[in-house]
Design a protein around this nucleic acid. Structure first.
Lengths: 261, 261
DNA sequence: TGGCACCATTTGTTGGGACAACTTCGAGAG
DNA sequence: CTCTCGAAGTTGTCCCAACAAATGGTGCCA
């Protein structure tokens, strides 16, 4: 905005304001690069620098041949604690995901299930209390909502538990993994959830269909029995369309007094 | 990596691999743009495009006149549930932040306290169950760790509660806000936490000292009494140096069996 | 009428050049 | 010995030009 700012920053600010004030609405096309070039009397290079700024802020999205449009935000909600309690009654953990998406009026599905054996990275080893390089069983899926990629999930299990509970199959575990673990005495008693954010790696951006300037929400849940860590679930959420929600404390009294949950 | 990829993408991939494998370590300087230009036999323009990709991924950081270096990640942890339980014994909510940073061997401080009255945005109004445009009391602070900006926090209170409990002062509330609310019968019984991520707005990037390619973690806690929402706390975390942790369930049995928390 | 080829439009990629702004460091002045 | 100034090195900004690649529509042809 300031007079001293670089040209491309000023153009970016100008366009940003137009979007924020609604002069250009979500879904609208921006002027073409050539039009902007004439409008601001700068080189196309400078126009592209300005558009790049907004693209990295996640405000706009360009497609070759089509043009540049203002992105619209559609937020989906993932109830972390709630989803877990549903798990207890569902036949598989994926069912909780279906149920939640159905409640939000959307169609959930999952694709590309994969079972692999991977060596433990330092981060995985520390959380699952195994040695670095030890073999872990990885069961990965991609979740889709309304045909759009939603999240990438990868669950890691220690090898001995996997063998004991029959997780070494490239298919769903009948009755669900949680029951299979509980049947052998590995009962879940709690979780530690860690949430961070960062920019996606190229393969993540590709799988999630992320456009430039979209961060990911990294969600790591470590599940414990009373004796040891049982499982680590790493979920990569597309940051521009997901929200993770926790309910802490006892809100039943509030709900009974007329508060809509 | 593919042969068909654009030149600048291939150069970015090459450099990314060098960083990932440790050929270029965190804190190291990258070759200068002119060196890279000669090394890959491309124009400086293309080199800058490649560096821009890595910058937007948060992997590198350039400074005019100095050069380009590989960024190093220092993670701080914010225990969402745990911090809250400390609140109950602390004289002010900021004390919980101090205590947690001290436990991690760091020096926490807060700056730029501000009390303002703002109209409720649609998002705020929906969560606090007031009408859009109603006056809300905003009490904002910036948190710093070891002299580096850490998070921006803004707590919103409904006007009637603020007047009743003496929150309309541009200073700390003696004994802490939580006690002041509880003294008038507004006892907290639970929270709803919402976590999302996005790219920072320019003013947020400035206040948090974020370099290009760093997303923010947006953390919204709505606090409830048994009758109504009492408070909404909006925290903007610098995404590259923060982690939010939740502990769910009862992990005491695991801790007693020798697991380090 | 349906399908295919082509063309105009628009963004993506890449090259070139020039100067500005900032940092570092060494040489020279005091 | 210290301070200042300036040169060298490095990234930042801005311009110009050309061609590639993708999209959407037009119009021809079967």
């Amino acid at each position: 905005m300031a007079q001293s700012d670089p040209l491309y920053q000023r153009i970016a600010s100008d366009l940003r304001d137009q979007i924020r004030t609604g002069a250009i609405k979500a879904g609208d096309r921006l002027p073409t690069e050539v039009e902007l070039r004439e409008q601001y009397d700068v080189s196309r290079n400078t126009v592209r620098l300005a558009l790049g700024v907004l693209q990295n802020e996640g405000m706009i999205s360009s497609t070759q041949g089509k043009g540049t449009v203002v992105r619209e935000q559609v937020m989906l909600t993932y109830h972390a604690a709630w989803a877990e309690s549903r798990d207890r009654h569902a036949s598989d953990q994926t069912d909780a995901f279906y149920a939640e998406m159905r409640d939000q009026g959307r169609k959930g599905e999952y694709r590309d299930f994969e079972m692999r054996i991977k060596p433990a990275t330092p981060e995985l080893a520390a959380r699952l209390r195994v040695d670095e390089g030890d073999s872990l069983v990885s069961r990965a899926i991609s979740r889709f909502v309304d045909g759009q990629p939603f999240s990438l999930q990868d669950s890691y299990y220690p090898m001995d538990i996997s063998q004991e509970c029959g997780l070494l199959t490239p298919h769903d575990v009948p009755g669900g993994v949680i029951r299979a673990l509980a049947a052998k005495g590995h009962t879940e008693i709690g979780y530690v959830d860690e949430l961070t954010t960062r920019m996606p790696r190229p393969d993540e951006a590709r799988k999630l269909g992320l456009s430039q300037g979209t961060p990911v929400l990294v969600y790591v849940r470590t599940t414990y029995s009373d004796k040891r860590p049982l499982r680590l679930t790493l979920t990569i959420f597309a940051g521009d369309r997901n929200r993770v929600v926790y309910e802490l404390g006892d809100l039943t009294a509030y709900a009974e007094n007329g508060g809509a949950s």
